[in-house]
């Protein structure tokens, strides 16, 4: 055996892939965080439309969640990646730039992940808002709080508390979905592993390490979310 050992290949030495994979893992987390944030913003508006929107807004939000939960994420990524390139190229032609301009993969990926997770965020926020006791809002009204103040001080914190477990689930889905962004050529964890597998001829080792890193990220963030959940529930008694 003259091929380097497992720890040499995945270490941080001169021939090691450790540093590259670590950068890839950071990229994965970045994509996931951006996608999650975009999804959260969409989800807040979606939930707002579903709860107190007019018939048109409600129908639009309903169509959005139904459609996005029924079609594959990969298709959405293709839409943003190729569709984005087509739109940018068309815009470029207006300014006299003949030729193809490719849409940045990171942006396409984060947008696609955001739009797909936005449907789940919408449902999580809607459910969480329903769990807020009407009495709390009535009490805020009785105290003379304005709409905005009521939202900031009462509705938002309470909704967030009820939404946290659901948001944790969405985060885990988003994290795994971010692996699909590798098809756009963004060098995140999976793409980096593909590159490593290709140049060393050891695909199994690389994908096992990638899977382990994904597991590590999801486990650590899962624990952090559990702590956050516990923190948000301090002071509330549990019925037993």
């Amino acid at each position: 055996m003259n091929s380097p050992g497992f720890f040499e290949t995945f270490g941080f030495g001169p021939d090691g892939w450790g540093a590259a994979l670590a950068v890839g893992a950071v990229m994965t987390v970045l994509i996931a965080v951006c996608g999650f944030a975009i999804g959260a913003v969409i989800g807040i508006f979606g939930a707002w439309a579903k709860i107190s929107g007019g018939p048109v807004a409600r129908a639009a939000a309903g169509t959005y969640t139904t459609v996005l939960r029924g079609i594959p994420d990969l298709l959405v990524i293709y839409l943003f990646y190729f569709g984005g390139s087509a739109v940018i190229s068309a815009a470029g032609r207006l300014f006299g730039n003949e030729g193809f301009i490719s849409f940045p993969g990171f942006l396409a990926g984060a947008l696609a992940v955001g739009v797909t997770s936005g449907a789940q965020h919408t449902e999580v926020f809607r459910g969480a808002f329903r769990a807020v006791h009407p009495g709390e809002i009535e009490a805020a009204v009785a105290c003379g709080m304005s709409r905005m103040l009521r939202f900031r001080r009462i509705v938002a914190p309470l909704t967030l508390r009820h939404a946290l477990p659901g948001l944790g689930n969405v985060w885990q889905v988003v994290l795994k979905e971010s692996a699909l962004v590798s098809i756009t050529g963004v060098v995140e964890l999976l793409r980096q592993s593909q590159i490593g597998a290709g140049s060393t001829g050891r695909p199994f080792d690389f994908y096992v390490v990638a899977a382990a890193l994904y597991l590590a990220i999801s486990t650590v963030s899962g624990l952090a979310l559990q702590l956050a959940e516990k923190h948000s529930r301090r002071g509330t008694g549990r019925a037993s």
Partner: peptide, 23 residues
């Protein structure tokens, strides 16, 4: 269950399709 729910499906597909041919 922990392993298969915690890692992306695409990694699992690659592991089986490309990975196993390493041996």
């Amino acid at each position: 269950i922990y392993v298969f729910r915690g890692s992306p499906l695409l990694v699992q597909i690659f592991l089986i399709y490309y990975g196993l041919s390493q041996f």
